[in-house]
Simulated scan of single mutants.
Amino acid sequence: MTPSPAAPEATGAPLLSARGLHVAFPGRHGAPSARAVDGVDLDIHPGEIVALVGESGCGKTTLARALLGLVEPTAGRVTFDGRPLEYSGRSLKAYRRRVQLVLQDPSGSLNPRHTVYDAVAEGLRIHGHGGDERAAVAGALARAGLRPPERFFLRYPHELSGGQRQRVVIAGALVLEPELLVADEPVASLDASVRGEILSLLLRLRAELGLSALVVTHDLGLAWNIADRVAVMYLGRIVETGAVEQILTAPRHPYTTALLSVLPESPGERVVLTGEPPDPSRIPPGCRFHVRCQVLAGGGADAAGVADACRGRDPGVPDGSGTAQVACHWAHARKG
């Protein structure tokens, strides 16, 4: 398995940045709030592809929605191109021209009554495009790999394959010439034979257009094939982050190790985590992973002298800068 072609090393100011981001949803009937995003720092630099990885329910989709301005944070801030994100209608409209969402289910993203042309042109019409609409739609379809584009103008979603529908969704994002794509499980609903084509397309768009991307996925194999950097999320927080090769060949957090162990190419033994992730309205003290941690359960944390810290002391939050960091008492004890 060969990692994706790397982008130039990230330097300078990030394009998108989150600092101290929290998103909480009120509980029912006076129950505690669910802390879906619970203190996240994350940077995405120009031309960089970051994979946000974790189990279902860990908060990664809520984090992506907060970065898009679809959910207003309870606390913390999002900045884009050096400016804080504002939540007025006009500001968000301008922001969403520069940051576009690509959803996992192209069938659900496309109106079955709209032709491909109308689906791709919709963003132009919403944002008041003043140029040649037909040329813009054709250019977006061609960049998404649907050539000749005119052949697809009058087709409907049901007349397309799953891969073609996903390319139409990507074209609908590209037509506004964004600087950043947020792709939520972009190949989860596609056959294995088509997945590689869509991932190659995203890499080509980065190379040709300088696009940045946040790819939300539960699949570390996908991250290996497309990302420059990985951020591993558990119960509302990023618990490990760093370059894709480092994270996926030498993981430091026990949760990352467990996620990797289920990949077919994994050389180690499979790690079966006990139980389900805790309720985000009742996050345990100390390290939030300790109730499922195979290292703590196996005595490794005791041997390193950090078992009490795992159960009672918060290991902190990676600062989002892109350097390799881990929120784990045991990993820090081993390094020390």
Rank of each mutant, 00 (worst) to 15 (best):
R77G: 15
A227V: 05
G322K: 08
G89N: 14
K60I: 08
A307Y: 03
P46M: 05
H290C: 07
L181H: 02
H127F: 06
V194M: 05
P148F: 08
L209K: 02
A94K: 02
R165V: 05
R134Y: 08
A66P: 11
S189I: 02
R204N: 14
G163V: 10
L52S: 03
C328W: 03
S200K: 14
G39F: 07
G76I: 15
L160H: 13
P277N: 02
H129T: 07
A31I: 04
L296I: 08
L202W: 05
H129M: 05
A64D: 10
A243S: 14
P157S: 02
E197H: 14
A173Q: 08
D132G: 09
L190A: 10
G139H: 09
V326E: 01
V187G: 12
L174A: 14
V168M: 06
H114P: 00
I283L: 08
P318A: 11
A231R: 07
P284F: 01
Q246P: 10
P5D: 14
G69N: 00
Q100E: 10
L67E: 03
L103N: 11
S88Q: 10
L205G: 13
G312T: 15
P318Y: 04
T11A: 14
K335F: 00
R204I: 07
D132M: 04
K93V: 00
H329K: 00
V232I: 14
A10C: 04
A331I: 00
L92S: 09
A140Q: 08
A304C: 08
L103R: 08
I44K: 04
Y87I: 07
A183R: 00
P5N: 10
K60G: 10
G172N: 12
L263Q: 14
V50D: 03
Q294M: 00
G236T: 04
R35W: 13
R288A: 12
H218E: 12
S107E: 13
F289G: 10
P315Q: 07
R155N: 11
F152P: 11
L190F: 09
H218N: 06
S281W: 00
P106T: 01
E9F: 06
C328A: 09
S4A: 15
D118G: 02
T256A: 15
H114E: 15
I226R: 02
R195C: 15
G236C: 01
V99I: 09
S266R: 01
V187P: 08
G39I: 10
S109W: 13
D302K: 12
I283K: 11
V23T: 06
A231E: 12
E245R: 12
G108I: 01
E276P: 01
G130S: 14
Q104S: 11
G316N: 10
V175K: 04
S107T: 11
D81W: 03
P149C: 04
R97F: 06
A34M: 01
A138K: 04
G286S: 09
K60E: 13
F152M: 03
G322P: 08
S17K: 09
A192E: 15
V194N: 10
H253W: 14
G320H: 07
A66L: 06
E276G: 04
G123C: 13
G69S: 02
P8T: 13
T115W: 01
P112M: 03
R167Q: 11
G30V: 09
P106Q: 06
V137R: 02
H158K: 09
C58G: 01
H29I: 01
A250V: 09
L211V: 10
V175L: 12
G322F: 07
Y234A: 06
W224P: 09
Y95Q: 07
D308E: 15
